[in-house]
């Protein structure tokens, strides 16, 4: 169980998500959320976080915005969700307009693109940590491992529609977890 005894203040939540939004070059946002919320502050446990990851990807909307709303709702209800949403979107909103204003200059710099690619690759490393932890947790449960692998291959390599894959795999995976009925770890 995550520590829910004392919910963090709205200002603190806003500040954390503002920083995540500001620093999240090259993607990797869910990695940041995992690091800040699950690892460093232990406000959510891993099952909560990872099922939230699934929910935020299945629902319409940018995954990371959904994940933030999900986390904010867990922490402080509606005000918490507003804080995470606004915090996350605030800095990128101004950054993207700022970059658009200087874009023509920026395009002249040939190394800018290479730098972005490098940053993006390093940022992917942060998501790899989340993925690695998720795989590690799935390993002891064969049905979870199968669900993970089938989802990964079907969406990542076979390019089946995400919705279709989730619509088939998720109920089976949930059913398997139900029958196992194992006490949650955690």
């Amino acid at each position: 169980m995550a520590d829910t005894s004392k919910p963090p203040s709205i200002v603190v939540i806003f500040g954390i998500f503002f920083r995540i939004g500001l620093f999240s070059f090259g993607g990797g946002l869910s990695g940041w959320v995992y690091r800040e919320i699950v690892i460093r502050r232990k406000w959510l446990d891993e099952d909560e976080f990872m099922s939230g990851l699934a929910v935020s990807q299945v629902l319409p909307g940018a995954n990371i915005i959904n994940l933030s709303v999900y986390v904010g709702q867990k922490l402080r209800g509606a005000p918490g969700a507003c804080a995470t949403f606004l915090g996350l979107i605030c800095a990128p909103f101004f950054a993207v307009i700022g970059i658009a204003s200087i874009y023509s200059t920026l395009r002249e710099l040939s190394f800018a693109e290479a730098a972005m690619d490098g940053i993006a690759a390093a940022a992917i490393g942060m998501i790899l940590i989340v993925a690695g932890r998720g795989v590690q947790r799935a390993v002891p449960r064969l049905e979870a491992l199968i669900a993970l692998f089938v989802t990964f291959v079907a969406v990542g390599f076979l390019h089946y529609s995400l919705l279709l894959v989730v619509a088939i795999v998720a109920p089976l995976s949930v059913l398997a977890a139900w029958y196992r009925g194992a006490p949650r770890e955690g």
Binding site: G27, S30, E46, D47, E48, M50, S51, G52, L53, A54, V55, Q57, N63, A120, I124, I127, L128, V130, A131, G134, V135, R137, A138, R141, A144, L145, A147, L148, F149, V150, T151, F152, V155, G156, F157, L162, V166, V169, A170, S173, V174, L175, A176, A177, W178, G181, A182, R184
Partner: peptide, 25 residues
């Protein structure tokens, strides 16, 4: 119990999607 099953069942699907997203990135 159904909530726990949902959470434990959805978690690996979420990770599978994250991995697929990494490939796409």
């Amino acid at each position: 119990r159904w909530h726990t099953a949902l959470e434990q069942g959805l978690a690996p699907v979420g990770i599978g999607l994250v991995l697929a997203g990494i490939i796409a990135l």
